[in-house]
Simulated scan of single mutants.
Amino acid sequence: MPSSPPHSLPRNARERQLIAQEAARLIAESGIHDLEHARRKAAARLGIASEALWPRLGEIEQALREHQLLFASGSQPGALHERRESAAQAMQFLQAFQPRLAGAVLSGLATGDSPVILHLHCDDPDAVQRFLHEQRIPAEARTWSLRLAGHSSKQHYPGCEFAADGIAFELVVLPEDALRQPPVSTDDGKPLPRATLTQLRQLLAQEQR
């Protein structure tokens, strides 16, 4: 059910919804893929500095679902399916690194420019780059900031990004301990949703029903 009109809500709830809707618009229209970055930019645009008035990331996801239903119902499902298929192929290719799918491709919010985000697990941070080089896959090194379960703050983790068949991939290399202590949300400390290749294939099978 669509959210209530902002003007009909109490002030705090109204500001949270305005930020969520602006963040959803930024993600849909401005090529921003990170929910936290979209939330912060939306709040700045609206002049709402107090983080106590900001929406949870789940509220932004809901606003994005509503935005896609209104403006992208014809194209979004196809883009999502294409990225899930590509993610499955990549996870099979990278199976030695115990990949987990994360982000919008897993949540179902991916659009035509969303990257496939894969968490790989290896205690040798350079192993993935070497593997891609051996396979003659050009990739650009990057780092990501994530907080793992059991840690009090974010840490920087290496990885790389590349494109294949017009789809962007982001590979984040985490230590093997992250299989038991996975990345957590900065909002509530709960583990971020992630999927194995088997779970992704189950999602793809459900899409065919």
Rank of each mutant, 00 (worst) to 15 (best):
R11G: 04
Q17S: 15
H156S: 15
Q17T: 11
A52F: 05
L9S: 13
E61M: 07
Q68E: 00
P158R: 08
L204W: 04
G74F: 08
R39C: 03
L132S: 03
V105P: 03
E15D: 12
A44L: 12
S114E: 05
R100L: 06
S107A: 07
F97G: 11
V173K: 08
A163F: 09
L203G: 08
D187G: 10
F169T: 01
K154D: 14
D177M: 05
E140C: 08
P182I: 15
A110Q: 09
T196C: 02
G166Q: 12
P115N: 01
K41M: 06
Q206Y: 05
S30R: 13
H37F: 13
E176M: 13
S30E: 15
A72E: 14
A28N: 04
P125A: 13
H7P: 00
Q68V: 01
P125T: 08
T143I: 13
A24S: 13
S153W: 13
H67C: 01
I167N: 10
L94R: 06
G103N: 01
E29V: 15
S114Q: 09
S4H: 14
I60C: 00
L9D: 13
E161T: 10
R136T: 06
A63E: 09
H121R: 06
R16C: 08
A24E: 12
Q89S: 14
I32W: 11
Q202R: 14
A102S: 11
H133Q: 04
L204Y: 04
P115A: 12
A38R: 06
R201D: 12
R201E: 15
Q76M: 06
A49R: 12
G112F: 06
S73N: 14
V116H: 08
A23C: 06
G112D: 14
A90P: 01
A49Y: 07
E170A: 03
H119T: 02
D34V: 02
A96Y: 02
P99F: 05
Q17K: 15
F131V: 07
E82R: 15
R56F: 13
D188L: 02
Q76Y: 03
Y157P: 10
R83P: 07
A23M: 01
A44W: 04
M1F: 02
M1I: 00
P99L: 08
H133L: 00
S107F: 02
V116N: 05
H67D: 07
L204R: 04
F131T: 12
F93E: 12
A163D: 05
A110T: 09
A195L: 10
A38S: 05
D126N: 15
A168Y: 09
P138Y: 04
Q199F: 10
A195N: 07
R136S: 10
V128I: 11
P10L: 15
A52T: 09
H151S: 02
G189L: 06
G150V: 01
G166C: 14
A44D: 11
V173T: 15
L9T: 05
R136L: 10
A23F: 11
Q62A: 11
G108R: 14
H121N: 07
I48S: 05
L35G: 00
A24P: 06
E51S: 13
R56S: 11
R130K: 09
Q155C: 00
R194F: 13
L80E: 07
L204K: 02
G47P: 05
